[in-house]
Simulated assay, not measured.
Amino acid sequence: MTADPSDYEKAMPAVSAFLTKMERGIDRTRATHAGQPYSAVRQALALALEEEGARPMVPQVVDELARQISEGTDR
């Protein structure tokens, strides 16, 4: 089964908007919580993503992002 290329084109504006919201939440959290304990970062990140409208998020993705912010790494 192959995907219709027009389905991809139709979905891209929504995907792009979601990624922009996600990036804003991550950037906000990184600016205010970089280097802080994981639990504080995780809570702040979850709140920032919710406030930006970047929900639902896969919990493991939020965990990994929080770990990176807490450790002060970008990847």
Rank of each mutant, 00 (worst) to 15 (best):
P59F: 01
E51G: 00
G25C: 10
I69V: 14
I69C: 10
S6T: 15
S6Q: 13
A44N: 07
S16Y: 05
I26V: 15
V61G: 00
A66Y: 03
G25N: 07
G35L: 10
S70H: 09
E50W: 02
P13M: 04
S39T: 14
S6G: 01
R24L: 13
H33K: 15
E50R: 09
T20F: 03
S16E: 15
T2A: 11
G53H: 04
K10E: 12
M1H: 06
D63C: 01
E51A: 08
A40S: 13
P37H: 09
T20L: 07
V41Y: 01
S16N: 14
R42K: 15
D74F: 05
T20S: 13
T73L: 08
Q36P: 02
D74K: 12
A3Q: 08
M1S: 11
T2K: 12
S39V: 12
Q43I: 04
E64M: 09
S39R: 14
S39C: 00
T29V: 06
L49D: 00
H33F: 14
A14I: 02
R55Y: 03
E23G: 09
L19D: 12
V41T: 08
L47C: 01
R28A: 10
M22A: 12
R28Q: 13
T73E: 12
A44D: 08
V61W: 00
E64L: 11
R67A: 12
P59A: 04
M1F: 06
A11P: 00
V15S: 02
A44C: 07
Q60R: 09
E71R: 13
A34K: 14
E9P: 00
D4G: 03
V58N: 07
L19W: 07
K21I: 07
G72V: 10
A48V: 02
E64T: 11
H33Y: 15
M1P: 06
F18R: 06
M57C: 09
D4Q: 07
A34R: 15
E51S: 05
A31N: 14
G25Y: 04
E51Y: 01
F18M: 10
V62I: 14
A44W: 02
V41K: 03
T29S: 08
Q36F: 00
P37N: 11
A46C: 03
I26W: 06
A46S: 15
Q68C: 12
P37L: 05
D7I: 05
F18S: 05
Y38V: 11
I26N: 00
V15C: 02
A17L: 09
